[in-house]
């Protein structure tokens, strides 16, 4: 019972803050709303026997990625992209309708599915989310993925340094 209440609060928080991210016009407030979504999703992870993933979600997403966003938003300022009437209204309405249709189709498909285990409460979880289990999975079964992700991070760091350097050169060259 307590689990259901916690899930309901976390799900409402996640979807509500996501709606905030999509609709708020001030980039700073949208980023703060994203923090709310990320924390709610971390609670959802905790309810699904994934404490390590929840901690990493908060540390990496809410604690580092959004901080990076906030830095860039503070740096770039908040002037609106264009001055004048916003021709977006009709486009936004069309897109909202389109996505709404997709969501409706998805809902119908989901609620009518007869796949086994969809509606049953989760069975008792084994030791799937503890650091030991995840560590063993990374080192034992999925070691290739582990190495690949470290390579991805290295390339991203190099790319960021390169982008920053090239921008500075571009400025001096002009």
């Amino acid at each position: 019972m307590g689990e259901r209440i916690a899930f309901a609060i976390a799900a409402a928080g996640a979807l509500g803050c996501a709606a905030g991210v999509v609709t708020l016009s001030n980039p700073f407030r949208a980023a703060v709303s994203l923090i709310g979504t990320l924390l709610s999703v971390a609670v959802l992870f905790l309810l699904a026997a994934a404490p390590f993933a929840a901690a990493i979600q908060v540390i990496v997403y809410a604690g580092a990625i959004v901080v990076l966003f906030l830095f860039v938003i503070a740096y770039l300022g908040e002037r609106p992209p264009r001055i004048g009437p916003d021709p977006m209204g009709r486009w936004a309405f069309l897109m909202a309708t389109g996505v709404g249709v997709l969501v409706a189709l998805g809902l119908i498909g989901l609620l009518r599915s007869h796949l086994p285990g969809m509606r049953a409460a989760f069975a008792e979880a084994g030791d799937i989310g503890s650091p030991r289990a995840i560590g063993m999975a990374f080192v034992d079964t999925h070691s290739l993925v582990f190495e690949a992700t470290s390579l991805v991070l290295l390339i991203a760091a190099l790319g960021a340094v390169l982008l920053a350097r090239r921008a500075v050169l571009g400025e001096r060259g002009r």
């Binding site: 259901r4 799900a11 996640a14 959802l44 860039v72 996505v99 809902l107 509606r119």
Partner: peptide, 29 residues
């Protein structure tokens, strides 16, 4: 308890809202 359906509903909702945001927003941030 919670069932898989609820997780998929939340996941679909988040994805749909994100999709809507990508389609509507002009500011790259």
């Amino acid at each position: 308890g919670i069932s898989l359906m609820y997780y998929l509903l939340v996941s679909g909702g988040l994805f749909a809202l994100g999709l809507l945001g990508v389609l509507i927003r002009r500011n790259p941030l």
